[in-house]
Design a binder for these strands. Structure first.
Lengths: 351, 351
DNA sequence: TGAGGCGTTGATAACGATGTCACGGATTGT
DNA sequence: ACAATCCGTGACATCGTTATCAACGCCTCA
């Protein structure tokens, strides 16, 4: 056996990539001049620019942005790290898209990763971003504290939290009007005559879940509804669990007349259960976060809609502003939610 | 006025980032030894490893992956570029998620961008990826030819196309069973007694649209249905346009008894129009690509479902395999579609 | 006409990491 | 006991780019 080996892509056919040196040689100029042309720096003669452009085109030259970044004064990688719930989730997708649009305008590329509400993933992904020297971070978090980001903040990396407020660090955050939105939803149900309103919640350790539950409870309190009537069910991790939870509620001795489901997947699970149990027109439902085609269901689903586009756009705006030297004090930006009345939330008890 | 300036993040508070030299100095070893520890290379004493780890932790050291990449033999940036229709679109999101999962396993980060069916964007985004020296590319395309990628392919960069086949280059592609899926949908409608089946299509220059239309036409031909009965409407760019198109169809002198909508947003637009015109239970509808909650609508929507998870997973698998030296010949992988019968596709004419 | 300035250009060091290689000390084999 | 080997380690060159600075030629103005 010889020592011949093909460790990776076939080295026989692999053509080397053109560097500035190659371009410089072909154009008959120095590398620094190529650099000047590529970066649009002034004081290069038109003739030289043409020669260099030609050579670069011939060789399919693409500058190595990271090699440049190594020496460049501003050390910008033109890259952002984005961590969202899951890139497969429409809410996250809308945030991602808004961030991409803002970043693309400035030639900035975006790393996007999924958190899955897993603290370990959070740390790993952030580390992955940091090792790639992203210029800024937009993060949804799951860990108990984001104190580990302090050194990065001190270094000057702009960090903006989205969807959930951070713990253990001061930084910008962009979140939905969670407690108020939940209160509005709850009040809406109360105004339609309900007192037995169940709350279907996510995992206890998720900040948005606690905020929404707080809004729900506060509103019940304001209406003078006994907390005995509040059926708070937490720890619902997916659509199937939500379905089961509602099945159980309906089978219980004292079912609620209305349901407030505090999240996307939980809402669809609830819809399925209500449908299965033929209770869709009997039990009111208001969901937190809009769902696709909710207006075409029967009944159409009343929701408190979030504004993920706005959340993403605002987060990107803040990060980019900080990169441009903006020193506005860190704060939490609250993006309003909107009650969208469609039918399911206007069902009255005992109908 | 002094020459003091604050070009970017406040240089007064900006702490420098720790490099291997700093870690080496603190640990009292050479930089190469730090490199060995960080990369888990063998032949370092346990005591030295401990010293280095300690120092690295104290300084919050994160290695600069791109600086290393510059000198490293394999030149891997541990990064993939992914270009999809739009990161806000559930189909794209599912692909993205599958790619992310496969990549994350190997510590690879993913750049994700949206194409918006814009050839100019395609070129710009690919260039953006290339300048960042991604290890591989997974691309949805909009331009007439991908010939511009030839130099990159020759260089050995693995490229896999998703959703649409490339033109002008030979490369792996992972696509849905478009023509066949469309034929299955069409046959399904024919089997339920329809002959006047309208086709609602996307922009003409989109490969998937042409494939699906081909499947539709072929199937009509096989059934001996006159092409006069085929009402092909193309150039539908969004949901609103689809709605309008169906409104027009219904108002025409000779409306179809069934509709095959060849895409996601077009399907929802069609549903809305049918609903508005009170025709949902009279005119059959089969959509290409599944939509959320389709099973809860009235009627529930029959669709030919794609499998974006599978498409993404397969594309990622191919790219990663090529990175590992796999030299299987380039080919197009066809991911099967599935007819999901729910109700709207089983409505008979004249009901 | 000669000093000074400006526009254009390239040689060289440096960025933060890894590949190479050489060195010293410990271990092994005979 | 001595050579051969192996292990642990660090000095140095290097990857592709940009910052610095010096040099050159040409123009301007006194």
């Amino acid at each position: 056996m010889t020592s011949l080996s093909t460790p990776h892509h076939d080295p026989v056919t692999a053509k080397p990539r053109a560097t500035m040196r190659h371009v410089a040689a072909l154009a008959g100029v120095g590398v620094k001049t190529v650099s000047r042309v590529v970066n649009g720096e002034p004081n290069v003669s038109a003739a030289t620019i043409a020669k260099v452009r030609d050579a670069a085109r011939q060789l399919n030259f693409e500058p190595d942005i990271h090699a440049g970044n190594l020496r460049r004064a501003d050390r910008r990688s033109q890259t952002l790290g984005l961590l969202v719930g899951s890139v497969a989730n429409p809410f996250s997708g809308a945030i991602h898209r808004a961030v991409e649009d803002a970043a693309a305008e400035k030639g900035i590329a975006v790393f996007a990763s999924s958190l899955d509400d897993d603290p370990t993933r959070e740390r790993g992904i952030v580390s992955t971003f940091l090792r790639r020297r992203v210029d800024g971070l937009i993060l949804t978090t799951a860990s108990k504290s984001q104190g580990y980001l302090l050194p990065e903040l001190e270094h000057g990396t702009p960090i903006v939290f989205v969807d959930r407020e951070p713990v253990g660090v001061e930084a910008d955050a962009v979140v939905s009007d969670n407690a108020n939105g939940a209160a509005v939803a709850t009040r809406h149900l109360i105004e339609h005559g309900h007192t037995r309103i169940a709350f279907l919640g996510d995992r206890e350790d998720i900040w948005t879940m606690r905020e929404r539950r707080r809004g729900y409870r506060d509103e019940l309190g304001r209406a003078g509804i006994s907390s005995n009537d509040a059926q708070v069910i937490g720890g619902i991790v997916d659509e199937q669990a939500a379905r089961q939870a509602v099945d159980d509620l309906l089978a219980s001795g004292n079912p609620p007349t209305a349901i407030f489901s505090s999240q996307n997947l939980i809402t669809t699970g609830a819809i399925r259960s209500l449908r299965d149990n033929d209770a869709g027109h009997r039990i009111a439902l208001v969901g937190f976060d809009d769902i696709a085609l909710a207006d075409l269901l029967d009944p159409a689903i009343t929701v408190v809609a979030q504004n993920p586009q706005r959340i993403g756009a605002l987060a990107a705006e803040r990060v980019l502003a900080k990169l441009d030297g903006d020193t506005t004090a860190d704060q939490t930006y609250v993006v309003p939610t909107t009650l969208i009345v469609r039918g399911s939330g206007e069902i009255r008890p005992n109908e």
